[in-house]
């Protein structure tokens, strides 16, 4: 069991309820989870299992109905807008399925944008490391529209890494990419965990993507139902099959 100090983020008995009465949907049912510092954690589950909701709550993008979320030493639950803004500047980074780069900025400007917004000077040495790792040195002056999807997502990864946040949340980062570009991105994420000790949480429904993680947490019907450590793709697939069956069994 990891101590509170070594946890980069924690969810304690988190509930998320949308709507009320007949239309009420319970997305998370008392999820408790610790994200270990310096590890690559994948969250998996079928559609509607609440995996994206869990990530959004962990990242402070969405509020929780009950329970508590902590990132580093900051209690996220109950933070106001300025507190959340501070949290985003200092503690978290994001990688989205849709890349979400600003079309008016060059690749380099996009990478440095979070730092510029926070008014922080980039650490030159680290910045060089990041762009070399993602292999973008010759594309820095290009606009997003002049880059391929894979290249755009690499820029997005570099942007998340540049500020060295406590945790990077990646939401289906390979969902919009072909398998080769996807593999590039996953390798890059893996390396930043292994070599630079970055903590990453990734939501995915792709077993192969999950196999790059140190630990896979399985979600079904708003609850953590299982987890795997140092998984292989086959092991993940196997677990998913069993889960699907058990979910069906539960439904019947």
């Amino acid at each position: 069991m990891s101590s509170p100090i070594s946890a980069a983020a924690r969810a304690a008995d988190v509930w998320k309820v949308y709507g009320s009465g007949e239309a009420q949907v319970i997305a998370l049912r008392g999820v408790s989870l610790e994200i270990e510092r310096g590890k690559f954690t994948a969250i998996m589950g079928p559609s509607g299992s609440g995996k994206s909701t869990l990530m959004h709550c962990l990242a402070g993008l969405d509020s929780v109905t009950r329970g508590q979320v902590i990132i580093g030493d900051t209690v996220v639950t109950g933070l106001g807008d300025s507190g959340l803004t501070k949290l985003r500047r200092e503690k978290v980074g994001f990688i989205f399925q849709q890349f979400n780069l600003l079309p008016t900025l060059t690749a380099e400007e996009n990478i440095l944008l979070p730092l510029a917004i926070a008014g922080r000077k980039p650490d030159q040495e680290w910045y060089q490391t990041v762009i070399q790792t993602v292999g973008l040195s010759d594309r820095l002056k290009h606009r997003p529209t002049e880059l391929s999807g894979g290249q755009q997502q690499r820029v997005a990864c570099a942007r998340a890494l540049a500020a060295r946040p406590e945790v990077i949340f990646a939401d289906e980062p390979t969902g919009n990419l072909d398998s080769r570009s996807g593999a590039d991105i996953l390798n890059f994420l893996r390396r930043s965990v292994t070599e630079y000790g970055q903590t990453i949480v990734m939501v995915t429904h792709d077993a192969n993507a999950a196999s790059y993680a140190d630990r896979v947490v399985f979600l079904a019907d708003g609850q953590i139902v299982d987890e795997l450590t140092d998984p292989s793709a086959d092991a993940v697939l196997d677990r998913i099959k069993r889960l699907d069956l058990s979910v069906q069994a539960a439904a019947e």
Binding site: S82, T85, L102, L113, I117, A118
Partner: peptide, 16 residues
């Protein structure tokens, strides 16, 4: 709209 969301997600304040 999406860009607004993005810049907010990477730390731009409401005032920003």
């Amino acid at each position: 709209t999406r860009e607004m969301g993005l810049v907010r997600a990477i730390g731009l304040s409401r005032g920003g």
